[in-house]
Design a protein around this nucleic acid. Structure first.
Length: 552
RNA sequence: UGGGGAGUCGCCAAGUGGUAAGGCAGCGGCCUUUGGAGCCGCCAUUCGGAGGUUCGAAUCCUCCCUCCCCAGCCA
């Protein structure tokens, strides 16, 4: 695999610009990581691994108002879960606050930074617009001594929040607004989750980021497109601060996925307004949610690889994510039978009170995964959807008079339907052919369908949570109010699914394929008393597609 | 109307002057004790548009069009 970033890295290695590659993944601990971050993580760590370099996990913790240790813990967890390691403790921009402060004084001494006493509103007014140049602040030409004194008073807590800021002295007329004397430090009398009450001034991202990269010896600082026009400022700082190393910034397009939202602000709203049950609700696009839902780290890494890295805005189809998941789980998930919406079938010619066991493969794709025993008896449950009293043309499943195969068991023929007073089918009567034990007929006849089933007397009860997309339109942002597009049916809870007994002691987070239905994983809400499964993804169902197309 | 980016199949994405990779989705067919999986085939005479250079252009030049980002003491 290659992309323009890797080409740059290779070229730098080839021509001796760098002897090794050092990248970094720099999340702000103000929310949970989502699938978009996964792309960046896979890029940064992937490049480092591929070229024998190193990738740091560095928290960009320069704004104590929004950041929390809990988020930082979750982020460390998620990156590890994805399969990456940075050796040792994570790094923090806040580890460099002393150095960053010293360099700020350096800029002041060099006449390249000044303390501005204008208010936030006044600064905005002086900034100009996209088409008009800005105006210089009346405080722009304070002496070095005055600036130093003021900046130290800012640091020492003598000034209120908003009373002053430290600004770079660059060019108020620059067509690039980021160069119109950007703010470097602001006053925030706020405790920081790591430095506590030590500081009451905090550096801005634009100031802290390039210098942190320099401190860490980052060779390639990879970020998203919206920072492209911050690069001149990034370079200005590297140029004008006596840094020990000169990192370079490269920008790539962030990942977007259809049928979901990706901005932290919107995800936070979904959580705080109760539209989902927390950051790791399996319907969320967060890594924690995908993990809880049953996604594998490998599937997400493969997805990130397939998506590619370029500078073009993109919206990836969720089906690609689902494909990557199925591809992995198909090979690794043990098969099991479970019935979501049970319909009783009484096999009238099977002796009452007796039962037998069948050997069923744990994974037809991989014989080394072995087999398991599945009990069978006179009464079994099948899926309600697998029976139709008056089947249309292409419906191959069970119907009156029709013979189908019960997977790994026998051929059964439906002989009768039992209905309640309202006319609903409540039970089926059937006969089985003892000669078809194991699922093959000596005379070679082959039913058109094979159904999954569970022996009623052996079945275990479980809650199964079925998830659908959180939003019912491809682009929830369209029209302004993304909440208006929430899918009211994104969660359906099956209270009493019937599962084969082999899953009775399935540990949390273990993944299975329920044959013909999809991939399921044991939720963390699960207990010995009550098994709870999440449906990670459905299997492709050709009949659903045929009937769906015909029905609408 | 300032600056910075981007435009190749429904969605991604290779391609870097020699005659449009690949993946997902979709559509056919084969196979099947999961209507799963697998396998086979189809799916851009055309690269935002118009000119031009060239034996030859998605790739070079010119003009035009469209989309995205930037006016936080957020990142």
């Amino acid at each position: 695999m290659t992309d323009f970033i890797r080409e740059i890295v290779e070229e730098d290695l080839r021509n001796g610009t760098h002897k090794t590659v050092v990248t970094r993944f720099p999340p702000e601990p103000n929310g949970y990581l989502h699938i978009g971050h996964a792309k960046s993580i896979c890029l940064n760590f992937g490049v480092a691994i591929e070229y024998g370099g190193h990738c740091n996990l560095r928290f960009d913790d320069t704004n104590p108002e929004k950041e929390e240790a809990e988020y930082a813990r979750a982020i460390v967890d998620d990156v590890h879960w994805l399969g990456f390691d940075w050796g040792g403790e994570p790094l923090h921009a806040s580890d460099y606050f002393d150095q960053l402060y010293a360099w700020a004084e350096h800029l002041i001494n060099a006449g390249l930074a000044y303390v501005d006493s204008l208010s936030a509103d006044e600064i905005r007014a002086h900034r100009g617009t996209l088409t008009e140049p800005g105006k210089e602040s009346p405080y722009r030409n304070r002496s070095v001594e005055e600036n130093l004194d003021l900046f130290r008073r800012m640091r020492d807590g003598a000034l209120e929040d908003g009373a002053a800021v430290l600004r770079a002295k660059i060019d108020m007329a620059s067509p690039n607004i980021n160069l119109r004397d950007p703010v470097l430090y602001r006053i925030k009398h706020e405790d920081h989750h790591r430095t506590g009450g030590k500081w009451c001034i905090y550096p801005m991202y634009d100031y802290a980021h390039p210098l942190s990269d320099a401190i860490e010896g980052i060779t390639h600082s990879l970020c998203t497109l919206e920072f492209e026009d911050h690069r001149p400022l990034y370079d200005w700082l590297i140029e004008n601060v006596p840094v020990p190393w000169r990192p370079r910034q490269y920008e790539f397009a962030r990942l977007n996925l259809n049928y979901t939202v990706m901005s932290k602000r919107k995800l936070l709203r979904l959580v705080t307004e109760g539209h989902v049950r927390g950051w790791d609700d399996p319907r969320m696009p967060t890594i924690a949610a995908l993990r809880r839902r049953g996604y594998t780290p490998a599937s997400i890494r493969n997805f990130a690889e397939r998506v590619g890295v370029a500078k073009r805005e993109n919206v990836i189809d969720v089906s690609l994510l689902e494909f990557s998941l199925r591809e992995d789980l198909n090979l690794t998930a043990p098969r099991v039978m479970g019935v979501l919406r049970p319909l009783r079938v009484v096999i009238e010619n099977f002796p009452e009170g007796e039962s037998e066991e069948f050997e069923s493969p744990n994974n037809p794709e991989d014989a080394s995964m072995g087999t398991r025993k599945v009990p069978f008896s006179r009464v079994v449950y099948i899926e309600r959807d697998d029976f139709m009293e008056d089947p249309p043309k292409k419906f191959f499943r069970l119907a009156p008079g029709r013979e189908v195969r019960l997977r790994s068991a026998y051929f059964v023929t439906c002989t009768n339907t039992i209905k309640d007073d309202a006319g609903n089918i409540v039970e089926l009567r059937a006969t089985y052919d003892p000669a078809t034990r194991g699922g093959d007929a000596p005379d070679g006849r082959r039913p058109k369908a094979t159904l999954h089933w569970v022996s009623a007397e052996h079945a275990i009860d479980a809650e199964v949570r079925l998830y659908d997309r959180l939003f019912n339109v491809e682009d929830p942002e369209e029209g302004g109010d993304f909440l208006a597009h929430l899918n009211p049916h994104s969660l359906e809870v099956i209270e009493h699914a019937k599962l084969e007994p082999s899953v009775a002691n399935a540990p949390r987070a273990s993944r299975y394929q329920f044959e013909r239905l999809g991939y399921f994983c044991v939720d963390r809400d699960s207990s010995a008393e009550r098994l709870v499964f999440n449906r990670t993804a459905t299997l492709k169902d050709t009949w659903a597609k045929v009937s769906g197309a015909a029905g609408s």
